[in-house]
Design a protein around this nucleic acid. Structure first.
Lengths: 143, 143
DNA sequence: CTCGATATTTCATGTTGTCAAGTAATTGGG
DNA sequence: CCCAATTACTTGACAACATGAAATATCGAG
């Protein structure tokens, strides 16, 4: 039986809602500083980890592939991303960051200070505790 | 000196990112079940707590007032919200949920189980701890 | 080779968001 | 009282994001 609407759970949910709102806001702000929208920043970040086919990007973003076409179009027209053929399957186009895109992704990552500022209020022990609690909450294997 | 990119902080940030993604996804899903968009659900929820002038809604959503006009238009055309004059200031329009809107808001609140399910993995003691850590992180007075 | 499935794009459409301009009502200084 | 500045809201133009349906090209199995 999952916890009902007890006041403790409601309070925690509310706090998580606040965290979510603040995270989103700061993410959009950081993206805007590099003249990117949130969606563009998320795709660029994804591709900076590894070039991906369009279809895979859509899966990561949980949206329709046709939507990704437009986002990558805009990133490509700004020279941050390029489409490459997939040698193994000519239907597939791999989106990969250009050098400029990789630099932008790195700058974006660095400027995501939203995380450091609020976490700075916690001691190392507290951060460790928070990490463990979030892992358990998300059902992630601690190791 | 706020913590730098030490691996602990990076891990916690990553976990928070996961929480944010899951929260958003489930919020949109719950809204969609009531044929609402996320933005419409957020406004309806706000108004279910208290009728608000358009300007105030924009402040809560951190967007331009002109944007709120459209969102409230759509909610109004579906009979979930109505605009009332403010007796104290004839420039102001108060947006308030209709009976139908209030019922929808309540149903929406109930179906937001995203919070209960993951929190169910934590004991009461852990939830209390998580609450306190989030409060400290957000700089919220614990009481 | 042919047929069904897959990857991507294009198009139509709707929602969300911004900004600039316009209307209506309030407020405060002279 | 009166006028000017301010405030609240709406409108219109435009861009990004999102979906769904249809078109194109390629793949893979039989």
């Amino acid at each position: 039986m999952t916890p009902r609407a007890d006041s403790l759970t409601v309070e925690v949910v509310d706090l998580i809602g606040t965290v979510v709102a603040r995270y989103y806001e700061e993410y959009e702000h950081a993206a805007a500083e590099h003249s990117l929208t949130g969606a563009q920043a998320r795709v660029l970040r994804l591709l900076s980890l590894e070039p991906l086919p369009m279809r895979k990007i859509a899966q990561c973003l949980k949206c329709e592939p046709s939507n990704v076409t437009g986002i990558v179009d805009r990133l490509e027209s700004r020279g941050l991303v390029e489409r490459r053929p997939d040698p193994a399957d000519r239907r597939v186009k791999l989106a990969a960051p250009t050098d400029d895109g990789a630099r932008t992704a790195e700058a974006l990552r660095t400027s995501l200070d939203f995380a450091r500022e609020p976490l700075g209020r916690l001691t190392v022990a507290e951060r460790t505790l928070l990490k463990e609690l979030l892992q358990r909450m998300l059902g992630v294997a601690p190791e």
